[in-house]
């Protein structure tokens, strides 16, 4: 299977995302102004500061030519993972619900956090098995997940909150400790923590790899049937 990792001007985590993906399958970089997704099985919108985050984080990147293709790919059921700035881009593009606001502390946070895996039966978390707690780093200034109350209740009721900050680990004031949500169809997922930075024992945790392996397993199943 093949992952495609988008590179925008201002992306900074695309190489880590590429390397992490390569531990689960093949992976290529997709350039923001190309409309060709190169036949990838899954798209990763990585972290960074796409287009300088001018206006609002993710606001300009959503109009990149490649994002039109990503939107089409998502509508057709393709798997899309947005990490940090990628999460912001997908929210701005309307592919994911809610928005990311400045951290309550107004400070940049960079630390390892514990996450609760709310569901292990999804395309993005299935490899977690009985692992219900993951240790993955966050690093952002604009990561406070917000959605209007009615929408929040619906997200919870529909089981679309896949990851939550463990008690005492919410780094940004996200409502209901939400760290990651998926779209209604379950094929687009965004999270603020960085699983691509937690794939090698050298940096303390390999829990992030479980997300990439989940996607690989999902694609493998789909190809097999």
């Amino acid at each position: 299977m093949k992952f495609g990792v988008i590179r925008f001007p201002g992306s900074c985590d695309e190489v880590d995302a590429l390397c992490a993906s390569q531990r689960a399958g093949e992976a290529v970089i997709l350039w923001h102004s190309d409309r060709d997704l190169q036949g990838v099985d899954a798209v990763i919108v990585p972290g960074g500061f796409s287009y300088g985050d001018y206006l609002r984080a993710g606001a300009i990147a959503r109009f990149a030519p490649v994002m039109e293709e990503v939107a089409e790919f998502a509508r057709a059921g393709g798997i899309v993972l947005g990490i940090c700035n990628g999460f912001q881009v997908l929210c701005e593009a309307g592919l994911l619900p809610g928005a990311l606001l400045p951290n309550t502390s107004l400070k940049f946070v960079f630390r390892q956090v514990d996450l609760e895996v709310v569901r292990t039966d999804t395309r993005f978390t299935r490899a977690c098995g009985d692992r219900h707690r993951l240790s993955i780093p966050v690093k952002h200034t604009t990561g406070r997940f917000y959605a209007p109350d009615a929408q929040l209740r619906k997200l919870e009721a529909d089981g679309r909150v896949l990851l939550r900050y463990a008690p005492g680990h919410n780094p940004n004031g996200s409502l209901r400790d939400i760290a990651g949500v998926c779209n209604e169809a379950g094929n687009v997922f965004g999270l603020m923590p960085h699983p691509e930075h937690a794939v090698d024992p050298l940096t303390g945790s390999t829990d992030g790899l479980l997300l990439f392996q989940s996607i690989r397993d999902q694609i493998a199943d789909r190809v097999a049937v």
């Binding site: 206006l55 609002r56 606001a59 109009f63 928005a99 917000y146 959605a147 209007p148």
Partner: peptide
């Protein structure tokens, strides 16, 4: 569509 995010 661009200048603001009407959600927030």
């Amino acid at each position: 569509r661009l200048l603001t995010n009407p959600l927030i």
